[in-house]
Design a protein around this nucleic acid. Structure first.
Length: 271
DNA sequence: GTTGAGCGTT
């Protein structure tokens, strides 16, 4: 499995546990974790109690853990998202074409549609091909019906036909008058995340490596997050952006951003 | 018949 999966770091809680919600934020539909016993090579599940993943007796160790999904993956994914992604503002957001780079040469439009159908209905799926030979150029476009599907797709990496692919808003769809802002958001470092201290004492910030669209900020006071819910925020004048917050415990939350949000200075915090 | 950063024949 490690041949196919690029490991992703996720944060622990203070007590050394991992919240299942932290996992599902990166792997929608996930229902648990397991690891491979180095001696027996058997897969063994990580103990999960009431949404909290507990470290093995020997600690988490320097191991790569594997995400578990329910057997009926599609159905469960929809249910998970219906309960965790509730955002009126997103629903009225228009979707945009996304460019998918790095596709295997053999991936067809049918393959692509089938892959993305697990996230939601696509209005359009294209693979760009050589007009003479008909062979794939290794990239394509997809447009989803629902904006929340687009956000979901953009918030994680995708392995299509056993190859990690890249996805972005295509250059043609990015607002030409605000290119600097979008770069700044993607260049945000942990120092800048400490700007959240203007809303309450921040005890930790964490950017996932390799870089995804998530960062975690921990407030000392668990009353800060509820007070931010529904507010429009901007970290700095130069960092006006729309953030979606995903509560994963009383004092932790994740913020999700992508270039599509830059045009707005609003911040959505999802309870 | 090959390839591996990029940006869409309508």
């Amino acid at each position: 499995i490690s041949e196919y999966i690029r490991p992703v770091e996720i944060p622990l809680e203070d007590d050394g546990t991992v919240l299942l919600s932290t996992v599902t934020a990166h792997f929608p539909g996930a229902c648990g974790l397991c690891d491979r016993n180095p001696v027996s090579q058997c897969m063994r599940g990580v103990r999960l109690v009431e949404g909290i993943l507990h470290a093995p007796d020997a600690g988490w160790g320097n191991l790569v853990y594997v995400v578990n999904y329910p057997k009926d993956n599609k159905r469960n994914m929809d249910e998970t998202d219906a309960s965790s992604v509730v955002n009126v503002k997103r629903a009225v957001q228009k979707t945009s074409d996304l460019i998918v780079l790095g596709l295997p040469w053999t991936t067809t439009e049918q393959d692509l549609e089938e892959y993305f159908s697990a996230f939601g209905e696509a209005l359009m799926v294209q693979i760009k091909k050589d007009t003479k030979t008909g062979h794939s150029k290794g990239f394509g476009f997809v447009c989803f019906m629902a904006y929340e599907t687009q956000v979901k797709v953009m918030s994680q990496q995708h392995m299509i036909d056993e190859q990690w692919c890249d996805h972005k808003l295509p250059n043609s769809k990015q607002s030409p008058d605000k290119p600097l802002r979008s770069r700044k958001v993607f260049d945000m470092n942990e120092d800048e995340l400490w700007q959240f201290c203007q809303y309450g004492e921040v005890v930790d910030v964490f950017i996932l490596k390799p870089f995804r669209v998530f960062a975690c900020v921990t407030f000392a006071d668990d009353q800060v997050l509820p007070s931010l819910c529904g507010e429009d925020l901007s970290l700095k004048e130069s960092h006006n952006m729309k953030l979606s917050f995903n509560l994963c415990s009383s004092s932790h939350f994740k913020c999700l951003w992508n270039r599509h949000f830059i045009e707005s200075s609003a911040v959505n915090i999802l309870p």
